[in-house]
Design a protein around this nucleic acid. Structure first.
Lengths: 158, 158
DNA sequence: CGCAAATATTTGACAGTTAAATAATTGATG
DNA sequence: CATCAATTATTTAACTGTCAAATATTTGCG
């Protein structure tokens, strides 16, 4: 097989893998979205924000939420507004920087999140059930390399 | 190690893998989005719709687009409206079913898509460059099993 | 100190995105 | 053939998300 043909099939492999990765991710995400709505009347971004706060009882700044959730600051403002309106989250002044807020779960927010997190974990475990621990580890390792590489690409031409 | 501990660490493995899959997918997607905007002044949903049509010169129904793009029908209506306004896509009556439209690329749409597709393929190949062909095949196989399984889960309680 | 640059958040405009409701058409069944 | 459930597309309302501009505060430099 010559170089051109080989390159050609490699390319196809990358595209096909990317489309499959995308489809699988979207399938799991759509399922989570639907279950969150049906079971808890909430949405994935709201759950995601609460999940971040769940790991930081002292609260997180908007900018930290933005980084962790991989979305823009304006988006975090909007989702926080909604959760605050629902009484699940509260903004507190950051004593170290008056520009910033510390967002944290309220008592009701902690209760609601605990229930959701337990079920959500079960959904994910169920979704990944066909893979063995070894296969999961292998896939995680490949994804780690991919992630690092794409991040380095972003550094170059972002 | 007892059953509970083992289950516990398995669960953690599934969650961690899912978060990594999600993060990696989002990284590549965000990069594609940015490049499409910078290089062609377009968006990922528009490109995605055009890519589907690129493979079907005779056109696709809105419902087929919806299924292939894994988004809702309302969404397809909106994106098609925009692309039609931009002259890249056209709606034609489906002779077999008066409820349906056949959406297809215009001449300008085909030209624009060809340019974008070539570059897009290069971005993806670059992103996946650190993986060998064997690793890509292994990952694709695992994803295929995952996809099949999650689809079967959807069948049960959707 | 004083001021320019950097940082944190908010706002507004626009594009996706979904779920649910509506309207038109089709096709199967009695 | 009449009816009626399923299918196809659209619309609407609420939400998610981006970007760019505006505001408030802090930081650091001269």
């Amino acid at each position: 097989m010559d170089a051109e043909t080989r390159a050609g099939s490699d390319d196809h492999g990358a595209i096909r893998l990317w489309l499959r990765l995308l489809a699988t991710e979207r399938l799991v995400e759509t399922r989570s979205r639907r279950l969150l709505l049906e079971r808890f009347g909430t949405t994935l971004p709201r759950f995601d924000l609460m999940a971040q706060l769940g790991r930081f009882p002292k609260g997180l700044r908007m900018s930290e939420l933005s980084k962790r959730m991989m979305v823009t600051g304006g988006n975090v403002t909007g989702i926080t507004d909604l959760l605050e309106r629902e009484g699940l989250v509260e903004r507190a002044a950051d004593p170290d920087d008056r520009r910033a807020w510390l967002v944290r779960l309220t008592r009701a927010g902690r209760r609601a999140f605990a229930a959701m997190a337990a079920e959500h974990e079960r959904w994910i475990v169920d979704a990944f059930a066909p893979l063995t621990a070894r296969e999961m580890a292998a896939m995680a390792a490949l994804l780690a390399r991919l992630k690092t590489h794409v991040r380095s690409l972003e550094g170059q031409d972002a």
